[in-house]
Amino acid sequence: MRDLIRHSLLTALAVAAMFWLVGVYDASLRDARFLDGWILLLGCGVQVLFSLRRKFPLLPLGNVSSWMRAHIYAGFFLLAAFALHTQYAWPTGIFETALWALFVILAVSGVFGAYLTRSVPSKLEQNRGGTAFDDFPAAQTELLQRADDLVLGVGGVAASPSITDFYANTLSGFLNGPSSTVGLFRRSPSTFRRLCEEMDSLEKRLDDGGKQTMQAMREVLTEKNTLNNRYAYELLLRLWLFVHIPATYGMIVLAVLHVAVIYAYTAGVP
């Protein structure tokens, strides 16, 4: 918390300094939009360095978590620079609107990403499991195989017809799924709770052998649910970058063109 306060104060101080500097620049009869514009563009350039840093983790340039922290606070600083540069007004030109929209997308996705990077690790901690993101399909197949073996009685007695029916009609869908990313977030954890309740209900009507089978099946179901949750959070940590990074480079392309246009048409004193 102390770090949060310290870093927030530093960011606020930097923002105040920027506003003051731009004000002084403007008062000297120069066009302050050039100054805050260059601050904004150069700031965006520095932010891009973060992704480069991640590509070269072995370079002795500080740890990634420090870079990430700096990236987040610099992002908030650039939000203020953006507000200053746009004069707190909606864009009106076509080109300006595109640039404005890309920055807003970039900023919103960045804020969302910052939230995820702070909140998801704790969720992953609650859903322990050493499966790497790329090994999720194999882990899911393994769980499915274990469930199949329990029903078919591989190495023992085959499950009762009621268990077989429950597995075939209800449980296999959950163990095989979800079929889509959206479904991943929509079905868990409510689906998991409903399945547990149905298993409890069925278990009451089974003999001891059946109860043992259902107990083993419940473990499979729980592992699958944990796997789903981990997969969902790991996916989230990757999916928001599909918005943030393309928006970053798209915005930089437009920003460079914007600078070219401005210097071609400029009439004030930079």
């Binding site: 030109g93 076509i94 480079y249």
Partner: peptide
């Protein structure tokens, strides 16, 4: 990312080419 950047640049160039004037870059 690459396709997005390329697409944005292409849209800008095409718009400026076929719009016939510089209205696309008018700031307001």
């Amino acid at each position: 990312t690459r396709w997005t950047a390329a697409l944005i640049f292409a849209v800008f160039v095409l718009a400026l080419t076929y719009a016939g004037d510089a209205m696309i870059i008018v700031p307001g």
